[in-house]
Design a binder for these strands. Structure first.
Lengths: 235, 235
DNA sequence: CGAGGGTTTGAAGTGCATCAAATAGTGTGG
DNA sequence: CCACACTATTTGATGCACTTCAAACCCTCG
């Protein structure tokens, strides 16, 4: 994976990207490895090369709230730049992963000097904020089966018409936490979704012979109409 | 109110602020006035001079989800710049309000040319994103009375030790919608909060003789410790 | 004083959480 | 290749929080 192809770093100057490349380190993480904790002082930001990283926060008694789960090509920890150099969440590898670490300092300097890059990063941030807004809306307006359906719809290849196949990217329990529900609820809600929309489920593999049913069931309780993938997909 | 003192426009160049001033218009809005709708093409961004503006989205059947409620000094519609010049939500005056409209074009040009300003805006955006994250966390980890308590805590003057007074800024029904609950739930949850933390409620006026109880009750179910006001207050 | 919106209260229903236990699935060492 | 251990997932039973629908109450303002 080449750093230059990352969506976040698009429009970065040559000098910047070269400097980044030189200071990049690849960390091999075991499942369960904590990369940093909420409110740790931040020196690096990270990019997922492979595997999955969970961003989360927790209360004193250990209850945790999952902020996001990031896969290949996604960046995290970069917002510490704007928040007193402190990470706003904790990060943990939820399976064996490779992570690229990069100095925040370089990012900061590039932002300060390359306006085109800043504009790009702002676009990126606005996009992320919009996604968060949609997440809140979904929890407001959709029930558990609908939220799962929406999650599934965003895993379908866009050009797949008619039948479509989906492989869940990670544990059902993790998906549940990302959608803000308990594993048990996820399991039951998925069955209900099957019943309502005729999807076929075999373990982590799902087939849709009639995506329209799913779309109708889920998207009618959302302010965006179906191909909202552009909105939700890319980070 | 002078445009130059707005947190969003801090670090804007003189030329920019002057140009903005010249193109500023003050709109007087009746309660219920819709300023724009979700997905309208955006030409202006806005600043609340007085009153309250509700940002929201709705599904086809009219159910709505409240994104935010903005008061004096807050800006809205500015993110359209980064989202294909389309507003990502609808905006409505929830009471008689004065709104300043400003051309997005000027904002865009300033962002493209004034790097210091861009940095400031990015800080602003990061802050907003963090707030949204916290909102999601609150809905994950706190129950209705706790969310209300947290809302109240953010209305207290920081230097008020011992007893403190709060006046609810707008309708209870609106607060309820902002916190993602029904008016009936809000009413009952507020009573429960009273019972649990000993706050005194008279209509929209609330007194806390012992804020610690409230803090203990609410903040123990959140990943941030009490004076999280810095985080939540300023927009 | 009366109209109308905001707020509270009551009764009933629903969806999700929780706790407990069974089952399926996966990787390990023998 | 099997048996075991461990984890992920499902299923069952129950409880609680919030919603919904209905009606009463309250407050403000013409």
């Amino acid at each position: 994976m080449d750093i230059k192809n990352l969506s976040l770093l698009k429009d970065g100057s040559e000098t910047f990207l070269t400097a980044l490349g030189k200071q990049a380190h690849v960390l091999k993480c075991e499942k369960g490895k904590i990369l940093f904790l909420h409110e740790d002082t931040a020196e690096y930001f990270y990019i997922v090369k492979s595997g999955w990283i969970k961003l989360f926060r927790e209360t004193l008694d250990g209850t945790q709230s999952v902020n996001d789960i990031l896969g290949k090509g996604n960046a995290f920890g970069e917002t510490a730049l704007f928040e007193n150099n402190v990470y706003p969440y904790s990060a943990e590898a939820v399976e064996a992963s490779e992570i690229i670490s990069l100095p925040l300092k370089l990012l900061k300097e590039e932002l300060e000097h390359n306006n085109k890059f800043s504009m790009h990063v702002m676009r990126h941030m606005a996009h992320q904020r919009h996604q968060k807004d949609m997440e809140i809306e979904h929890r407001d307006l959709q029930n558990a089966p609908q939220r799962i359906g929406c999650f599934l719809l965003n895993l379908i290849d866009r050009d797949a018409h008619g039948a479509a196949k989906i492989d869940l990217p990670y544990d059902k329990t993790l998906i549940a936490s990302k959608l803000g529900m308990q594993p048990e609820t996820f399991s039951r809600a998925l069955s209900k979704l099957k019943e309502k929309t005729g999807i076929h489920i075999k373990g982590s593999h799902i087939e849709l012979y009639d995506p329209k049913q799913l779309i109708e069931y889920c998207c009618s309780h959302c302010s965006s109409e179906f191909p909202c993938k552009d909105l939700l997909a890319q980070k």
